[in-house]
Design a protein around this nucleic acid. Structure first.
Lengths: 412, 412
DNA sequence: GGCGCTTACTTCACGGCGAGATTTAACGTC
DNA sequence: GACGTTAAATCTCGCCGTGAAGTAAGCGCC
C-alpha cells in the first residue's frame, strides 16, 4: 500500500525551492523575511535558496519596503518574462492558441475556425501554425517556452514514458476522434514539452486558480455547456482516477432507464439539462438556430412567463440540484462552482432553485459544509487553464527548466 | 495551491524508515539485499536504517537463505509481537472489540450485544470493558498497544488538535447519534491513541489490504447491507473529501423525485436496493422477520422462480449496475468490489446482471478499464479494517512508537 | 585443507542539506 | 556620529544518503 519513492538529500532542496517559488508565485512580492515565516524555513535556508533562484534567473528583487528603524526589506518576485507558457483550446468550433508570460498575462493569441470535419492531422497543423504565429507576434523565442498545455474534447489517456506528453491518446466520441495519437502527431511539429488534458478539466483548473474556486482545497467545478462535465479537485490536486477520466459527471444517471443520451446510454444528466438537450426539448430541434441562440431564446421565453419554458427550466434546476447533491454526497467538497457558457447564461436564473434542490436531495452534514457558486470566468479560460498544466509542473519541480531553455542567468 | 510542508533533513530518515518498514510489512521476510533493490535505497542506507529498526525492536532477523556460492542472505521481518493493535466495530446490533498483533493476527475478541437504545455513554462503557477484557485474556499489556481503531455507524468529523482522536464527533442519523463527542468520551477511559472512521470505510480498508481490492491503487468498495455505502480509494489512500464524509453512495439518486428514503430525500439508491428497502418492498414489512431472514427468503423465492421476487431482484441488479456506472464515470477506478452482508448474499445471483447493466450505463473507455468483483471478506472484517487505522499511522511514521510504549529494545 | 571465487553485508569518507548562531548591512533616531 | 533595530548573509554543526572500499560467510576445486 502506498509505497513512497525513496528520497535523496537532493530532493530536499528541490522541495525547498518548490515551496518558496510557489509561495512567491501566489502571494505576490514578498521579502525573504516573510517568506521564511510563511513557509517555516529558517532564515538561513531562505537566504541560501533564494540566492540560488536569483542566480537561475527565476526570481528577482523588485524594490524594498521602508522600515521604521531597521534595514528595509527587499521584495522578491518571480521574474515574469523569464519564461513563457502556451495554452491551447481545441474546441468544437475553433482552435485557439494563446501565449502567456510566467505571470499568466496574455501576450498574444491566434484563433482558427474549425469546420465540421475534425481531421486530426489538420487540427495539428493548425496548432503548429498558431504556435509559430503567437511566438512571432509577441517576439518571443520558442527557447523560452516552458511547455505547451492543451485542452481537448474527450477523454485523455496519459502517457507513461519519459516524454509522457508525446504518448497522449485522445478518445473523443462526440468529436469524432477515436484513439487519436495526438501526442505523437504534435511531436512531429514541435519539441516543446506537451501537457494534455480534457478541456473541461483545464477550465476547472483556471477556475481553481483565478476564479470562484480560489482558496478552496476540495472543490468540484461543474461545467455546463452543450454537454455537461466536471473537474474534481481533491486536496488541491485534480482528481484523475486510474486512467485520468474521473469526473465524467454528464453521464451520471438522474432517471435510470430514462431519456436516451448521445453517449448511447439512458437517463444521463446531460440528456436532460445539457444545452443541446434543453434546446431540443423546447423547440424540437428547430434547424438553423444555433445552440447558443436557442438557449437564449428559451431563457427569454421563461422570463416572459411562457409556461412550457418555465416548466422546462424549473425541471432542469431540480435535476441539476439533485445531481449536484450526488456530487456533494460522493466527493464532499467545500465548494461547487457552476461554469461553462450555458451555466453562465442560465446561472443567475437557476441558481436559487438549484441550491434549494441540492439541499433537499443531499445529506445534511456534507451539504452544510458546501457552498454552491457561479463561475466568473468565461469559456476563454480554457487556454488559461491549459497553460497552468506546464506551469504546475514548473512550480512542482522547484523551477526546473526544460533542456531546450538556454539559461539567461543573471551573472554575478 | 498545494503548499507542501517544509522538510528537514531528519524527515528523510523518517521517509526511509517508513519505506523499508512498509515494504517489509507487505512483502514478507526479505533480505537487506532485496530490500535495497526494491526500494531504490543504496546498500549502505539499507544496512544503516535496518540496524536502527532492529535496535528499536521493530524488525528482527529470521533465518537465512542458502546461496549458491556466496554469503547467505539474512531474512528480516517485522517483529509480530512487538506491538499490538485494537479494532472495534460499533455495529447496529453489537459492539465487538478485537486485539491483533502487528501482523494483524487475531489474538482475542469480545462481543457485547447492543439493544435498541444506543446511549453513547453505555456504548463507551462497553468499549472500555471490552478493551480490558481482550487485553487480559491475551495476556497483553496496554503499554504495547499502538492504538485503537474504531468503525462507527454514521459520519465522522475528524479532530484537528494534537490528539485528533479525542476530538472526533460522530453524526449517526440512523443510529440515533447526533453530534456525539465520541473521542472525548473515550478519552475518559483510555489514554491510548484513538483513530475513528465510518464502519463502511474501515470495511473498505480491510478489503483493500486483504480482500478483493488487494493490488489496486484506485478502487471503490461498494458496501451493500441494510443500507448502502462505499469506500473510495484513490492512489492507495482513502478519499475523504473536505470533512471526511466522501463516498456516501447510498443517497445518490437513481430516480430524482422517486421513492422516499429514510434519509428524508427521494429517489436514493438505498431506497431501492438497500436490504431494508428490498425486504419491505417484497413482503410489505411483515413484522417479526429479521432483515437477514427476509432477504434470504426473497432470494429463495427468486431461485424458485416466483415472478414478483425475480422482478424485484432484476430491477435491483439494473439499478445497482447503473449506479455503479455512475461510480465508474465519476471515480474512474481500476476495480469495484461489492461487499457487505447483503452483497455477499445476493452477489452470486446478481453479479452477471450488475456487470451487464454497468456496461450499458457507463462510458465505454472507463468501463473497459474496470473490473467488478465480489468481496471475499465477511462483515467481521470491520474490526480488521479498524485496526489498520493505527497500523497505517505506524507505518507512515516509520515506526514511531507512541509515548506510552516502553521500548523493549534488543540490547547489543 | 588451503585457495580462490562469489555474494551479502558493514564501514567510512564525502558532498550536500537545513537549523541556529553569529556577523554584516542598512536603515532610523537622538 | 554613536546607538538601537531590523534584514540579510555567512558560518558551524549535526545529520543524511551515496558509493567505494573493506569484511564476513558461504561455495567448489584441486
Amino acid at each position: 500500500m502506498t509505497p513512497r519513492g525513496k528520497q535523496t538529500v537532493r530532493d530536499l532542496r528541490r522541495s525547498s525551492r518548490s515551496t518558496l517559488l510557489r509561495h512567491l508565485y501566489f502571494n505576490g512580492p514578498l521579502s525573504r523575511q516573510e517568506l521564511g515565516a510563511a513557509t517555516g524555513l529558517s532564515a538561513g535556508s531562505v537566504s541560501n535558496v533564494t540566492g540560488e533562484l536569483i542566480t537561475d534567473g527565476l526570481i528577482e528583487e523588485c524594490g524594498s519596503v521602508e522600515s521604521d528603524g531597521g534595514r528595509p526589506r527587499i521584495l522578491l518576485r518571480v521574474t515574469p518574462g523569464q519564461a513563457h507558457l502556451v495554452g491551447i483550446d481545441i474546441g468544437e468550433t475553433q482552435v485557439r492558441v494563446t501565449l502567456f508570460d510566467l505571470a499568466l498575462t496574455e501576450l498574444a493569441s491566434a484563433d482558427q475556425p474549425l469546420e465540421t470535419a475534425h481531421d486530426p492531422e489538420r487540427v495539428v497543423g493548425m496548432i503548429a501554425t498558431g504556435l509559430t504565429e503567437v511566438l512571432a507576434s509577441a517576439g518571443v523565442s520558442a527557447d523560452s517556452v516552458l511547455g505547451v498545455g492543451l485542452g481537448v474534447p474527450g477523454i485523455v489517456e496519459q502517457g507513461t514514458s519519459a516524454d509522457p506528453g508525446a504518448d497522449v491518446v485522445v478518445h473523443g466520441q462526440t468529436f469524432g476522434w477515436d484513439a487519436v495519437p495526438l501526442g505523437r502527431l504534435l511531436r512531429e511539429h514541435t519539441a516543446l514539452p506537451l501537457y494534455v488534458d480534457n478541456g473541461a478539466k483545464t477550465l476547472g483548473q483556471a477556475e481553481m486558480w483565478f476564479g470562484a474556486g480560489r482558496g478552496s482545497r476540495h472543490a468540484v467545478v461543474a461545467l455546463f455547456g452543450s454537454g455537461v462535465g466536471a473537474c474534481v479537485i481533491a486536496d488541491g490536486v485534480r482528481f484523475r482516477g486510474a486512467t485520468s477520466s474521473a469526473g465524467e459527471w454528464g453521464h451520471t444517471k438522474v432517471h435510470v432507464g430514462g431519456r436516451r443520451c448521445r453517449c448511447g446510454s439512458r437517463g444521463c444528466l446531460e440528456a436532460y439539462v445539457g444545452a443541446e438537450a434543453l434546446v431540443e426539448r423546447w423547440d424540437g430541434t428547430r434547424p438553423g438556430t444555433s445552440e447558443k441562440a436557442g438557449l437564449a431564446a428559451l431563457l427569454r421565453a421563461a422570463e416572459a412567463g411562457q409556461p412550457s419554458a418555465v416548466a422546462l427550466l424549473d425541471e432542469a434546476a431540480e435535476l441539476l440540484g439533485a445531481s449536484i447533491a450526488d456530487l456533494v454526497n460522493l466527493f464532499n467538497p467545500e465548494r461547487i462552482v457552476i461554469g461553462g457558457w450555458a451555466g453562465l447564461l442560465l446561472g443567475p436564473r437557476l441558481l436559487p432553485a438549484v441550491r434549494e434542490a441540492a439541499t433537499s436531495y443531499a445529506l445534511t452534514y456534507p451539504r452544510s459544509r458546501t457552498t454552491i457558486e457561479l463561475s466568473h470566468l468565461g469559456p476563454d479560460a480554457v487556454t488559461l487553464g491549459a497553460a497552468t498544466l506546464p506551469l504546475t509542473h514548473f512550480l512542482d519541480s522547484g523551477g526546473e527548466l526544460p533542456d531546450h531553455i538556454a539559461v539567461t542567468a543573471a551573472v554575478g
